[in-house]
Amino acid sequence: MARLFREFGAGKSPEAITKDLNREGVPGPGGRPWSNTTLRGQARRGTGVLHNALYRGVLEWNRCSYVKDPRTGRRVARPNPPHLWETIPVPELRIVTDELWLTAKERQAEVRARVGGQPGSDAALNATHRARFLLSGLLLRRRLHGGGQGIATAARRAARRGAATTAARDAGGGSRRHDRAEAMDVIRSMIKKG
């Protein structure tokens, strides 16, 4: 773990660190491959290796409360304010020195400042992701032949699962290739119309 903090503090990106770990065959948590979110996690919730205070010898809990979303019935995590967190020192579990911990925290603050984020927020980092498709985000709320599904959503779902759009399904099925081609035809005609 000290290696992860050292490399991140020295300027290496979470993507590059996890790529190296996976190439070297180092198992990630639970034996799964490493991902960049395994390292960076979510600042407000204290998830991810770089936010886990246990590595510096501090056990933290009550960072989140879990409530049931009445619309979906699913359990949703809500970050608690810092004054509700509980901590206890466990120096025997320390893996990372204070110097490494603080270096990583300084680097996180630099990255957050560079992308315009607020302390404890990941929103600005997530906003820096490159769009997957050329017109991503520009075609939402359009309808695909009355099927009740956005064009971007239809193309994305068709590419991901091979599922037919609602309109194609109502017409007796459809293939992934048909759905993608149909969505692209609608997009092209919209672009031509201006």
Rank of each mutant, 00 (worst) to 15 (best):
V90I: 11
A171M: 10
S189L: 11
L21F: 10
L140P: 05
R112F: 00
T37P: 00
A10T: 07
V67P: 01
P119M: 06
R180P: 01
T47P: 04
A168N: 04
A164M: 02
A155D: 01
P27Q: 08
R114P: 01
E92S: 08
A16R: 12
R6E: 15
P79Q: 13
T97A: 05
E7I: 03
G194S: 12
R177C: 05
G146C: 00
A123N: 14
D185Y: 06
R188D: 06
G120N: 14
A163D: 09
L39R: 03
L144V: 08
M1K: 00
L59C: 09
G46N: 08
T165I: 00
R107F: 02
N52K: 00
R112A: 07
L54Q: 04
G48N: 05
A124L: 08
N36A: 15
R23I: 09
Q42T: 14
A123W: 12
T37F: 06
T153W: 11
A77Y: 10
G147T: 00
M190C: 11
G146P: 00
V26D: 08
G137E: 09
A124T: 10
V90G: 03
I191F: 07
Q118N: 09
R132L: 07
A10K: 13
P81D: 13
Q108C: 07
G173K: 06
R142Q: 14
K105V: 04
N52S: 06
P27R: 10
A183Y: 02
P89L: 05
Q108R: 09
R6I: 01
V186C: 06
L4Y: 02
R141D: 13
G172R: 10
P14A: 04
P91V: 00
T165V: 01
A158P: 02
A127E: 15
R32C: 07
L93I: 00
F5E: 02
D69H: 05
P119S: 09
S35N: 12
Q118S: 11
A168S: 08
Q108M: 13
A155K: 08
L139C: 14
R63H: 07
I95F: 04
V67Y: 11
H178A: 15
P33M: 06
L139S: 08
R141F: 13
W85L: 12
L139I: 14
D179V: 00
P91S: 00
L21C: 06
A152I: 07
L21D: 03
A158T: 03
R23D: 15
T153D: 15
P29Y: 07
